[in-house]
């Protein structure tokens, strides 16, 4: 058991160093030179403050910052209101009884926080199709985008529950506590994500 874990840790460390170097090498070979936007703030500043936030949440609220379980709490609450006995008989909802939880409120407030940030920075959007999507699929691809967003949402949420968290709960809160499960999950998020995005946007 310990040997497996040690091997995984070693492989992850190698991967983390190799990935950016390999990535940069690949970038030069790609034909496109897409003009990516930037954030209003330095990503290092925003990231460091997110780290402080995750830390304060653990210290003051005794809860990790996460997001994906909110998307199970919401339909779970509806299901629990309609059929409480049956809902709480499902193993997942038995272990994690649907409620107005820390994470559900956090995710709702995240919408407001981003609205405030976009509004204050003059970055409010309002588009259904985003630039990179249009560059790839054209202006009249609303139906395709709807299908992709629906299917992607279903698959991603199912994966998050199977893995035990998402890019916030595992990717930030878990990794910064040095959890083995979180490092393994985070690396797999990006392996799956990179392969899929390459297929969709670069084939």
């Amino acid at each position: 058991m310990k040997r497996i874990a040690t091997t995984l840790v070693a492989l992850s460390a190698v991967g983390l160093v190799a990935a950016p170097a390999v990535a940069a090498a690949i970038v030069r070979d790609l034909p496109s030179d897409y003009p990516y936007p930037t954030g209003a703030w330095s990503p290092y500043l925003a990231g460091a403050l997110i780290g402080v936030l995750a830390l304060l949440a653990l210290a003051l609220a005794n809860r990790p910052v996460g997001a994906s379980s909110a998307y199970a709490d919401a339909p779970g609450l509806l299901s629990r209101a309609i059929a409480p006995r049956w809902t709480l008989s499902l193993p997942y909802y038995k272990d994690e009884p649907p409620k107005v939880s820390w994470t559900l409120v956090l995710v709702c407030a995240t919408v407001l926080g981003a609205l405030l940030a976009a509004w204050s920075g003059g970055e409010l959007n309002g588009a259904y199709l985003q630039d990179l999507w249009i560059a790839r699929f054209g202006q009249d691809s609303h139906a395709w985008r709807t299908a992709a967003a629906l299917a992607g949402g279903i698959i991603m949420a199912y994966g998050a529950r199977l893995a035990g968290g998402c890019t916030s709960g595992h990717g930030i809160s878990g990794t910064l506590q040095l959890a083995v499960s979180s490092w393994v999950a985070l690396i797999c998020f990006f392996i799956g994500g990179v392969m899929t995005a390459m297929l969709i946007y670069r084939l």
């Binding site: 995710v107 919408v111 940030a117 698959i155 199977l162 998020f189 799956g192």
Partner: peptide, 27 residues
């Protein structure tokens, strides 16, 4: 398995659970 599945969905949707909420706020 869950991590890889998550990645497939992430690549298809483009937002992850936390950033999807932020993307809605951004419009």
């Amino acid at each position: 398995a869950g991590g890889l599945l998550f990645g497939v969905g992430f690549g298809t949707l483009a937002y992850c659970p936390g950033t999807d909420a932020a993307a809605i706020g951004q419009g």
